[in-house]
Simulated scan of single mutants.
Amino acid sequence: MSDSIVDGMTNTAENPLFDYSPITERPALHWPGDARVAVYLGLNIEYFLPDRPSTSIWPGTADLVPDALNFGWRDYGVRVGIWRTIESLDRHGFRASALVNSAAAEHYPQIVKAGLDRNWAWLAHGRTNSVLHTGLTRDEERRELTDIVDTIAAATGRPPRGWMGPGLTETFDTPALLAELGLDYVLDWTNDDQPYRLTVPGMLSVPYTVELNDLLLFSRGITGPEFVRMVRDQYEQLRADSAHGGRVMALALHPFVIGQAFRAKYLDQALEYLAAQPDAWVTTSDDIAEHYLRTVRQR
């Protein structure tokens, strides 16, 4: 049947949050200083509950309470890995786009201070990465988002402008509710190399990546040298594509993955390469969204 029902929706249902827009049919996008590729680092700063299963390196113990093996692996990121990662960002002049759980903002004030000292951009990343942002009524979600945003604002001294849900989760109401709270953009829809406007007035989707993402790459057996090669390949192709308009390159980092000692030099090599590109705009997701909203007319 052409209109078969899947999970209560027909297969002809359209996404109400954005329209189809082929990148080949858009006006050229221009970055500051005639840069060709806007490059930002999405640094995931996450809080995990010790009695809930979550991202795991070994599924065999994931349902145990406590799950010392997997929780300890995740916890390494905020205790050790992030400080190693920060050293590399500092060395090559990168400001992080910090994707912070509101619970992480409360529990890890030393990390917040390090980010404030470096003028990081702060994005709301849900409450905790042990719980996906789904299954909420509109009123429940409004209360949840308000508390998340207020908690991050209190910890950092500034309200977040962007959102990425834990596990890139949101509801169809999320962008409108975020707009009510003063946010400008989401990262969850990883379907483009340029920002684009959502159907919610004033809200953008800014590119993020589940491909050039340390958590997924290294879990598939990618090696450090292969990671560096992929970063170079990504930039080179996006730069070539930018002959028809500026592109965005996101690099997604998790301190419990990239912050492991044996991977540190490969992150350093990747950042050294990106920082050396004369036509790269090394920036944050906040600045990408702000530039787009200010310079690109709504179509």
Rank of each mutant, 00 (worst) to 15 (best):
E106I: 09
R138C: 02
E144H: 15
S130Q: 08
V131R: 14
K113Q: 15
R143V: 08
H107K: 15
L145M: 06
Y108F: 15
L136H: 15
T146W: 06
I148P: 05
H133A: 02
S97Y: 11
T137Y: 07
E144A: 11
D150P: 00
I148G: 06
G135L: 02
A153M: 07
N119F: 00
N101I: 02
R91I: 01
T128Y: 03
D139S: 11
A114F: 09
A105I: 08
A155Y: 14
E144N: 07
A104H: 11
T146E: 13
R127Y: 14
L116M: 15
H125R: 09
L132N: 10
R95I: 03
G93F: 12
T151D: 01
V131C: 01
D117Q: 14
A124E: 06
E106N: 06
R142Y: 13
E141N: 08
D147N: 15
R127S: 06
A155C: 09
T137H: 09
A124N: 13
N101F: 04
D117F: 11
A124F: 04
Y108R: 03
A98Q: 09
A153N: 11
L132G: 05
H133M: 12
D150I: 00
F94R: 10
N129G: 01
T134A: 05
P109S: 04
G157D: 11
A96W: 14
W120V: 08
T134E: 13
S130E: 06
V100R: 05
G135N: 11
A124V: 04
R143G: 01
L132Q: 08
H133I: 00
D117V: 04
H133E: 11
Q110Y: 09
S130M: 02
T156S: 03
E106H: 12
S97T: 15
G157H: 14
N119W: 04
R91G: 00
S102G: 06
F94H: 11
A121S: 14
T151S: 03
S130T: 05
I148F: 10
R118H: 09
D150K: 13
W122V: 04
R95E: 07
Q110K: 15
L99W: 14
A105S: 12
W120F: 15
A153C: 03
A98N: 10
R138W: 09
E140G: 11
R95Y: 05
E140Q: 15
I111L: 13
F94W: 12
